[in-house]
Design a protein around this nucleic acid. Structure first.
Lengths: 239, 239
DNA sequence: GAGTGGTCTAGACCACTCG
DNA sequence: GAGTGGTCTAGACCACTCG
């Protein structure tokens, strides 16, 4: 583990434990550098990343402030969501189950070729799963993955977590994803599996996930019941 | 402008112009450092930020690859959305108009106090606007801002862009925002202004925007017609 | 003017990947 | 073993903020 990563962990805990209370200034960079016996550059790398998480904000000539977020104070579920449902629920008491509705192999159509940068002859998995939380239908998930990147996929794996298989068995790291969120009317298929009515909207997330090195590894479409799912994130942009 | 910022601009252009084609390796860091006559650390800062944009990906022992994104190749509207509607549409031919439906001053209720970290006696603006694009209703926007942070707001400003006023006149920089996206059924108010039917869903974005230093400056709720709006972003997370 | 963070340098060592 | 990126250092100079 890199020094800056250890420092991040320590500072994050100090903020969460209010050892550095919200609204207060952190010690100045040179003092932090002394405390952790590292150079100032290393402190800055740690602070930069904490700022990206939305925990702190630095201002030239002033110092580094601990941000006071109502969403941190409250028990708001800060769903950063994307490692997949299993990771999200990992530390909770909820019971997750995946029902495999469809699991096929085939050639990609034009859309999939385009999203996953495949040739028409490069076969893919087509997976449809219904993810259940505490035996209640939660989301309907359509997943497309190139066979060349994800060998030996089994129904067993699909019933648990694809992400665990990618990470732990195939040693594939996912570095980012391009995501699109929209609202939609429900289709008959949605209503059948998600147990919703005709005038219930659907919250849809489409994503292309990329592995380290840049190859797309997954294109998926997640259809959520509108009343039990929302997406939250902290966005740092200079405007 | 910092050196690393200039380098980012140059490299980004080279990638977009396919001087560095998708899938190819960038020159190694030491070569880039020579070319721009900077230290390797400065090159790394530039590359880090380009990786955050989703343009490149570095791998130890290998090099830095230009990612091939289908969403970059296509004319997909990469709506990074948050500077507000005006900024988003700035370089397009569309005609933006804001109709001020309501513009009031009052004390914050508990929700707003909580989101904007205000006392019950600290007055706020309550603004409801209908944003039109090419004379078609587009989104219905509810905005709450503390008066102490945003003095002298006028109807005139609301008819144009709040963000421009914050940035150019008040010199307030927005450094980040906490966002939540969900789907909802339409309300009578939605239907009245957005011209949608009862079974049309609504795509809702709620956000708390923070200014430099960490004070919340805006809480807003944006109700979008489901058929003309979606939110897209590139998310870099190590999983 | 004193104090802060932002940027930058010129090196160093290491871990990883590949043939 | 050769080549790559990741981390880290110990300094330096500057811009900004505040009283």
């Amino acid at each position: 583990m890199a020094k800056y990563e250890e420092i991040i962990t320590i500072l994050r805990n100090r903020i969460k434990n209010e050892y550095y209370p919200a609204g207060s200034l952190l010690p100045k960079q040179t003092d932090l550098a002394k405390e952790f016996t590292v150079s100032r550059m290393t402190i800055q790398k740690a602070l930069d990343l904490l700022a990206q998480e939305g925990l702190i904000s630095s201002k030239k000539g002033v110092g580094t402030t601990v941000l006071q977020h109502s969403f941190l104070k409250k028990g708001t579920s800060f769903v950063s969501e994307y490692p997949g449902l299993s990771a999200e629920m990992e530390n909770s008491d909820h019971k997750i189950k995946s029902v495999v509705i469809d699991f096929e192999v085939g050639f990609p159509n034009e859309t999939i070729q385009d999203k996953l940068l495949l040739l028409p002859e490069e076969p893919i998995y087509k997976i449809v799963r219904l993810r259940m939380v505490d035996d209640e239908p939660f989301v309907l998930e359509y997943t497309y993955m190139p066979i060349k990147s994800v060998p030996n996929l089994t129904k067993k794996i699909l019933e648990n977590s694809i992400y665990h298989y990618l990470k732990n068995d195939l040693k594939i790291q996912i570095t980012g994803a391009y995501r699109t969120i929209r609202a939609d009317k429900s289709t008959p298929t949605d209503r059948k599996y998600l147990n919703c009515t005709e005038d219930d909207p659907i919250l849809e997330l489409r994503q292309i996930a990329y592995q380290k090195g840049g190859d797309p590894i997954e294109y998926s479409c997640t259809r959520n019941r509108f009343d039990i799912r929302e997406y939250s994130f902290f966005d740092t942009k200079q405007l």
